[in-house]
């Protein structure tokens, strides 16, 4: 009984220490002495790695998710003669939920795991220590550009995801199943609100971007510098990011769209 209590205590303390280290990394990378102009080229390079290279998976999944939603929604809505509401159904589910959430999950799998592995390997091969030897702060030189690149790229990816998904819904709903093109767009326009739906979706995806990139760089920076440690850190990045995104999504939805 006593040893069980001690285990619980040790586990809690470890978690708290990890949160503390993560906050230190965030502080050192973002808040303490930022050099936006000097590090801007590094951010561009990282945006290419995490943003541009994720574009294909985002566009393809967005297209297919929009198409599937139009197909599924149509079979239900047509029973009530309400297939004109297909547009708002596809647009609202993409803008409010699927766009930010699925983008964040894909981003964690595609870019987050790569960030963790890269930084972890830098640590294992003592590149980070070498930087410190040369009086270059690895937090500012390595971590900060990756954090910023993730934070900027992911909301953009989420917007592209939603837009492509709506086009996919149009492809299936209008061009294939024969929903009226005018009612697809006009009822969508009448239903979707700029602030309520689009801006809230972007806010969601900014929060997810922050959480996913933070977890990714922290797991890499904090990894045990062995091959086993890096593999564990990469797995944990994907698992923790996905859980955090899904959990936060409920909280944010309750705050934004709840009563």
């Amino acid at each position: 009984m006593v040893s069980w209590l001690a285990d619980v205590g040790a586990g809690t303390l470890n978690k708290l220490r990890a949160i503390g280290r993560a906050t230190q990394i965030l502080w050192g990378a973002v808040v303490a002495k930022p050099q936006p102009i000097k590090h801007f080229p590094l951010v561009i390079k990282q945006m290419h790695v995490v943003g541009v290279k994720s574009l294909s998976i985002i566009v393809v999944s967005g297209l297919f998710i929009g198409m599937v939603m139009a197909l599924q929604g149509y079979t239900i809505l047509v029973d009530y003669g309400a297939e004109g509401s297909l547009g708002p159904m596809v647009a609202l589910s993409l803008l409010r939920e699927l766009g930010p959430v699925v983008t964040a999950l894909l981003f964690a799998g595609r870019a987050g795991s790569a960030l963790t592995a890269e930084i972890g390997l830098m640590k294992a091969t003592e590149q980070l220590s070498s930087l410190e030897m040369m009086a270059v702060d690895p937090l500012r030189r390595i971590i900060a550009p990756r954090l910023w690149a993730g934070l900027i790229s992911m909301p953009m990816l989420a917007i592209i995801f939603s837009a492509v998904g709506i086009i996919g819904g149009h492809l299936v709903g209008v061009d294939w199943l024969g929903v009226d093109a005018g009612s697809y767009w006009s009822i969508m326009q009448a239903t979707v609100e700029w602030e309520e739906d689009v801006v809230n979706g972007v806010i969601k995806s900014i929060v997810f971007a922050f959480v996913v990139t933070w977890i990714s760089v922290f797991k890499g920076y904090d990894a045990v510098p062995t091959s086993e440690g890096i593999s564990k850190a990469t797995t944990e990045t994907v698992v923790y990011s996905s859980l955090a995104v899904l959990g936060l999504d409920f909280v944010l939805t309750a705050l934004m769209f709840g009563i």
Binding site: H48, G51, A91, A163, W194
Partner: peptide, 26 residues
Amino acid sequence: KIELMVGLFVVIAFAATMMLAMKVAN
């Protein structure tokens, strides 16, 4: 080349934003 790709990425994202805005702005 990397800068070019990132520029393209930003332009695509901007176009997607405009598309969403047009839908709302009717």
